[in-house]
Every structure is written in C-alpha cells, then in structure tokens.
Design a protein around this nucleic acid. Structure first.
Lengths: 263, 263
DNA sequence: CATAATTGTGCAAGAGATCGCACATACCAT
DNA sequence: ATGGTATGTGCGATCTCTTGCACAATTATG
C-alpha cells in the first residue's frame, strides 16, 4: 500500500493524511495500530497525524484511534438548537399518524424528530424531499418511500426547486406535516428560506390535510418568506400553550391545537 | 437520564441497549466511560452490554467503546466484489470528464468509484438517482446536484420508477455514465434488475452521449433485462482488453474503447 | 411456601493496550 | 555547517479489558 520508504519529504505526510481520511470516512473508525501497519510508519507518527487532522476538525480522536468527525455543519447545529422542544413536538405529531397513511414530511429538524415513532407504523407511504429522512425511514420494512426530484442542498440534505414542485404537483390526497419557521395571524405561515417556502406552498395546496409543527418561539414571529395562510391547516402541534389569543384564533378557524398531555 | 436505581429486571438492560444504540447511531462512536456515567451503571456492565450488542452485529467494538456497525448490507457486499476492477474503471471513466460538464451518473457501485476524481472537477452539473452519490458529491463546493424523483430503494440507496423516468424525461444534453451488468453483441446492454433497466432506457435516449462502464466479467454475459443496443453508446470503459472480436465490433459501430494505460 | 437456579450488577485485581514525552536520527534547505 | 522538519524508539504513566467472585432480585422448582 505504502512503499515509499526512501525519498520522502512533505509529500508522504500528505498522502498519509489523505489515506487516513479515506479510511476513516469509509469505516467510521480507524485504529492507530492498523494505520501504522498499513502505512508502514510507526504508531507515533500516526498519532501525530491524527492529532493534526483532529486540530483541523477532519476527524475526532478516540482512545485507540479516531472516528469520523461529527459534522459541525449548520445542519447539526440546527438539530441541537431547541432540541428538546423539537423532540417533544416531533413525537407528539407522529402520534397523530396511523398505519397505512400517506404522508408528506418536511426536511426540517423538527419533523426529523418524528422518525422514531414513524418507524413503529405499518404500511406508510412517505413523500419526502429529505435524503436524510429517506435513509432513516427506508429502514422501515414495509414503508414506501417516495423522494421528490430537485436541486440537492447538501447543507440541509434536501431537494427544492422547480423539479421538486413539479413532483409534488403530481401528488394528491396525502397529509402534510410541516415545520414552520414563523406563525403570525396577519402574515400567516412563513419560512426562513425562499426555496423552501415556495415548495411548501405547493405541498400544502395539494395535501388533503396539513398539520403544522412549531415550537413556542415561532409564535407571533414571522419569518421572511410567506408560505400561506391558516386556511389549509387543520392542526397545529406545539410544546407550550401559546396563550388565549392564539387559542381563540385557532378555535375561530377550526384548527385543532395539539399540546403535550398535562404540564 | 437513567433514574431506575432500585427495581431492576430485564427491562433496565433493554432500555440501556436502546439508549446505547441511539447514541452510537447519532454520534458514530460512544465511549464506555461516557455511557457508564450517563446511564448510572458501572463500566463493567456497559462493557457487557456492548459485547452483547456487538454479537448481534448492532455495533462494532473498538478500544474504549464502540462505533456504529459497518452495514453488512448487500450494498456493502456489492461494493466489495470486484472492488479493484470497479475502482480502476471508475477512475478511468472519471478522467474523461472536464470542468463544467453536465452528467448523469448511475447509482451502481462502479460509478460510485468515480467520486474521487469527480471531486476535483469544477462547475459540474450532476444528475443523480443515488442519494449515496448525492451526499458524497454534494461536498463539492461549486457542483450543482440534481436528484431524480422516484421510489426510494434503501438497499441500493437510489430512486426508480415512473417518477424517476418522468424527471429524466425533462432533461436533455447531458453525458450519461452507466455501469452495465451485461454486454452482448446480439442482446445489447442489459441490467440485472427491471426497474433500473427501464430507467436507464430513458436516461440513454435523452442523453447527448452515453459512456458505458463494465468490467471484463460483463462481456458476452447478458443479464436478464435489456436496456438497449449499442447505437447510442459512444465509449466503453473497461479494465481488460475484451479480445479482437469485441474490438472489431466496437470499431464497426464507432465506439471508442477506453482501457487502462499500459499493462 | 421454601429452596434453588437464573440473571443482572458491582467490585477489584492483574494483564494488556495505549498515550505522551523526551531523545535520537535522517533528510532537506539555506 | 546550521537549523528545521519528519520520523523512529524507548519508557513510564495512564487507561482499558478480562476475569472471578459476591450480592440482590427475579424466576423456576420441589
């Protein structure tokens, strides 16, 4: 594998680093001992390599070797933020789902928290624009996962754009689960991001029923891009009582408010 | 997190196992020490848990903890088989690609080996039906990755079916890179699998140019499902000289044969 | 009902593996 | 020659693994 015993220089180190990253990204884990054997250098050198790579956040050190770096991407960061509220809402929303339903589930982090409960349902048809969710929910033995076409956005691991809209425009009769970024009684439902907002307009208008997921911080705080108004929404799932004004508004518009039981 | 100090039984262990699997699948790695702290049991118990889970192939043991199990799924197995030939062919085919081209790259394991070289190209537009490749190639800073819609097949991590065909039918002018399962002068190009074959029929007929990837075992061995004939194929990339008969055939049909340099 | 087998867990000691550091060596550039 | 960088080696300190044993709770058995 690595036969460059003589004439070394700065090149050998770079090659090793590339090789190490290759191995770690393929297997998820590498042992110092194995790397030393397969590269022909000493374990001390491998440790120095790993240290350098770890400083550059290319991997994570663990006892005995290293593992693939947990992505410090924005996706991960968003998953962390308000993680508890998102989890509560996601699981609460997933409780509403019965076997053999047809659903659209959005690519946001709140809906991602529905995955555990979704795995317990039988015979679901899942309409997704998230490769992350598709991989997760593809594990369900008898689920039928349909992906939307579109431009792939690596930082969100989803697809958007005209092709995505075109795909969803061919579907009807599903129940849409959507995590909104902002809820406002005048402005309606909104998202932080234009492409997403545009796609969800079509998702909602083609759906048989739309269920909104939003934690308490989303109430009364409109985001930049409007998705639509509350006409099509049949339920709103959230983690805290949004107050009498919202309760009244929902009642007038025949929207069911879903809250965690007690407390 | 784990407060069940008294009343034990078979339940606590199962809960811990679920918790451990959760952690390992989220982070890719867990340390014995951390698990012991967060579950409130001794490190010895955690080690016993990990051992059991490892025996069930739920995770892999590593010094100091455990990592997510490398999937022994069929996908992985196929990647292993003939890995060397696939890698040679994949890299060879990727050499043909220039900056700013528009490509379709299929979801098979041979084309997956194009990924390293593809990452060095600038301004590519990539038409994919593989979530695996999309995630991999989404890392390229200035690439434009377009995913086809369709039914998601977890064991191959790709999409097929009418929706996929419908998406590709809206595209023209790309160069298609396709890994065939069988090549036969009478039967033409074929695949092991019907859905794939059907999709690739459309991929090829809409492409500006089609380049076939096939290792030497694929020659003269037709697979079950016909994709099409050699009319649309402009190049065939393979790892060994397929013999004079094939060379003559390719020459007559104006197909360029691409082989590894020397040897 | 009492007793025994089973299971899950904690503790501790010894063996084994790993880490970090200091120092030595080889190579390259100035 | 001098200094810097990359690497190898040796060693003590630290960490981890295995193993055997004891205890508690549950379950099975007479």
């Amino acid at each position: 594998m690595f036969d460059n015993d003589s004439g070394n220089g700065a090149k050998a180190a770079a090659d090793r680093h590339a090789y190490i990253l290759e191995r770690v990204s393929e297997n998820g884990h590498v042992a110092v001992r194995d790397l030393a054997l397969s590269t022909g250098v000493s374990e001390a050198t491998i440790r120095r390599d790993l240290k350098q790579l770890a400083e550059r956040n290319k991997l994570d050190l663990v006892y005995g070797g290293a593992t693939a770096a947990r992505t410090d991407h924005s996706l991960q960061a968003r998953t962390e933020r308000n993680a508890n509220a998102k989890r509560i809402i996601g699981e609460l929303a997933a409780q509403l789902i019965r076997d053999h339903e047809m659903l659209f589930v959005d690519s946001g982090t709140t809906c991602y928290e529905m995955r555990h409960i979704l795995k317990q349902r039988k015979g679901l048809t899942l309409l997704l624009n998230s490769t992350r969710l598709a991989i997760e929910l593809g594990q369900i033995p008898d689920a039928n996962v349909i992906l939307l076409a579109g431009q792939y956005r690596p930082e969100r691991m989803d697809t958007v754009g005209p092709l995505a809209i075109h795909t969803i425009d061919q579907m009807r009769g599903y129940i849409a689960y959507i995590g909104a970024d902002g809820l406002n009684q005048d402005f309606g439902i909104s998202a932080n991001e234009m492409q997403t907002a545009h796609l969800y307009q079509h998702v909602i208008s083609n759906s048989r029923e739309t269920i909104l997921l939003a934690d308490h911080t989303k109430f009364a705080a409109p985001s930049l891009f409007r998705i639509g108004d509350f006409d099509a929404v049949s339920k709103v799932v959230t983690d805290r009582d949004p107050g009498p004004e919202w309760r009244k508004y929902f009642e007038q518009n025949e929207i069911e408010l879903v809250l965690p039981t007690h407390k």
